[in-house]
Write a protein that binds this DNA or RNA. Structure first.
Lengths: 232, 232
DNA sequence: GTGGATTTCAAACACTCGTTTGATATAATT
DNA sequence: AATTATATCAAACGAGTGTTTGAAATCCAC
């Protein structure tokens, strides 16, 4: 059918415009202009603007099998390497690589103010992603750690990655364009987030300690690890 | 002047509506309805919608002296406690305490898609906040750590806090309302973020290790700390 | 009170929005 | 080829937008 072509073009243009401007500020007319179709086509194919939004979102973020972040590393890899691969894959997707940038922006908008219509899609999408991360963390964290603590650690991993992307303009304002361009690449941020988390879990050397030092813990910790109550 | 009353009411209502709906989706009419003034008042006091937005933003987030996050703890406190106080204050503000919730939401919108008009205000606001955090971290981190690494750690602290707030709806979808209400309070999240960061810096015990254990580092670290190359 | 500046208001303006319409073009089926 | 279903189009509709207007209402010094 030749219609599928127009329908697909609308879906794609809608994703772009919705991501750029948000649902309300996006106009059907601009979407149709970018898709190179008549204004009435949106209502012909999707009924109204709302249903177009839902379809565009579902098309951009299918909750199906293709959401695997990084299924290409072997399952028998060490958990630390799996975690690193997960973070790297997440940052890669966030920083807009092969996937068009607008898909992540669309997701960001739904995170900030969820549309009731997309809640099921979002839930499926995130639960799957989060479960992937928790599978990795479960192999690292002690078995007796309560679930809510584990979840918090998982969100801390995701939160750092998302922030470096979502708050990118603000970060640039603080540290300058040059430092951001030079030191906030996917690879360097992977090193940073992964190193911080693994160090927090005791699986890597604490941050800021050169490998040459014999001791692997901060000197001050001997004080803070005293039985208790020894303030000074 | 009796006008200051109306002007102030408009400024306040504008902040609320802009935060809820975003600049474009917010309507002057709704702002005036909430402020209980005539529609023309916006143009009378501020000229147009754009200038109203800038003024409302500046009024909500003054870059002046009052942005101190937590100036109430003594400067001679241990850096770890200062860091904890900073995180606690940030989370408190984020989670909408005394400050109306819409102020943080307005800030979130500017983070996600900065308005050119507010860039100077934003820059001043965030640079001051970030400098505060860096002052604390500088006392903890080794002096020879390069600036960009220090900045990354700072953003990791802020990023986690912001994510727990900004992604709150999504987090709720993943772990359920009950766990979020119970375990994502300001105090518990402060414990978590602070504990994770301090552990990563070697200033606290690694996560998931009960204080009863004699050793303070994960057993596996003895392997990963071997000179090098010993994969297995 | 009187006059002049300031503030409020209902009404209207020009414009854009999402959506509808009815005619026309294209494709598929018989 | 004739007929039916499908797809496209320009034009218009009504509702909602930001903004303007000009006349009332209110204030305040004199």
């Amino acid at each position: 059918m030749s219609s599928d072509d127009a329908r697909g073009r609308i879906l794609n243009a809608a994703g772009e415009v919705f991501a750029e401007r948000g649902f309300r500020a996006a106009t059907v007319r601009e979407i149709c202009r970018r898709a190179d179709v008549n204004v009435a086509s949106v209502n012909y194919y999707f009924g109204d603007k709302e249903r177009l939004y839902v379809e565009a979102f579902k098309a951009a973020h299918p909750a199906g099998p293709e959401l695997n972040l990084a299924p290409d590393w072997p399952n028998d890899a060490r958990p630390e390497e799996q975690l690193r691969a997960f973070i790297h894959a997440l940052l890669t997707r966030l920083m807009s690589a092969e996937n068009p940038a607008w898909k992540m922006r669309l997701l960001q908008r739904e995170i900030l103010e969820p549309t009731p219509l997309c809640m099921e899609v979002m839930r499926a999408f995130f639960r799957a992603k989060f479960a992937q991360l928790m599978d990795i963390l479960d192999e690292i964290l002690p078995a007796d750690m309560p679930a809510e603590r584990r979840h918090q650690i998982g969100f801390s991993v995701i939160g750092q990655c998302v922030y470096f992307r979502a708050a990118s303009p603000v970060i640039r304002m603080v540290i300058g364009e040059e430092e951001q361009r030079e030191h906030h690449t996917v690879d360097l941020l992977t090193d940073h987030v992964c190193g911080l988390v693994l160090a927090a879990l005791g699986l890597a050397r604490p941050l800021g300690q050169p490998p040459s030092e014999g001791r692997s813990m901060h000197p001050r910790i001997v004080k803070s690890l005293e039985p208790e109550g020894a303030e000074k």
